[in-house]
């Protein structure tokens, strides 16, 4: 996983009240948790099949930056983070004038639409793959998102 992505994740985690998040990309997974005594560790570097615009460079250099942030990263968790299946623009509502599909604190059912990611005029409705409560919306409306970027933290 790209170290910049890990850094971004840590920053997002620090700005939120989420205790930990876990991201899966293919066979690789990263778990970042805030309050942990576990020594910082880097995710197992495994090649990830990703679209061309995502640069995936697993690197040992990840360790220092992770350590700097004071957050711990390991590879096991049950937390549910919904990640972007593609590169595109993130929209929380069907149109600029409509209400967002979900707000923080909202309960969602499996199959409920959470957001739209637009890429080359394909509007992709991203749905919840499990029922849960939206703990945190991790991306701002209208922001570009990358493949695998966390969009929502579900509890």
């Amino acid at each position: 996983m790209d170290i910049r992505k890990v850094k971004k994740l840590i920053e997002m985690l620090e700005d939120s009240d989420v205790a930990e998040i876990e991201i899966h990309e293919g066979e690789e997974s990263v778990r970042i948790s805030r309050y942990s005594s576990v020594a910082p560790a880097v995710a197992t570097p495994v090649a990830v099949a990703a679209p061309p615009t995502t640069i995936v460079t697993p690197s040992p250099a990840a360790a220092p930056s992770v350590a700097d942030s004071g957050a711990a990263v390991d590879t096991h968790s049950n937390d549910n983070v919904i990640t972007s299946p593609m590169v595109g623009t993130f929209y929380r509502a069907a149109s600029p004038t409509s209400k967002p599909f979900v707000e923080e604190g909202a309960e969602v059912k499996e199959g409920d639409t959470l957001c739209i990611i637009e890429a080359m005029k394909i509007l992709n409705q991203i749905t919840a793959d499990n029922a849960g409560v939206i703990k945190k919306v991790l991306v701002e409306n209208g922001a570009p998102v990358e493949y695998g970027q966390p969009l929502f933290a579900l509890a």
Partner: peptide, 8 residues
């Protein structure tokens, strides 16, 4: 215009 709904 293409729209998709991505389900499990």
């Amino acid at each position: 215009l293409i729209e998709t709904r991505r389900l499990a």
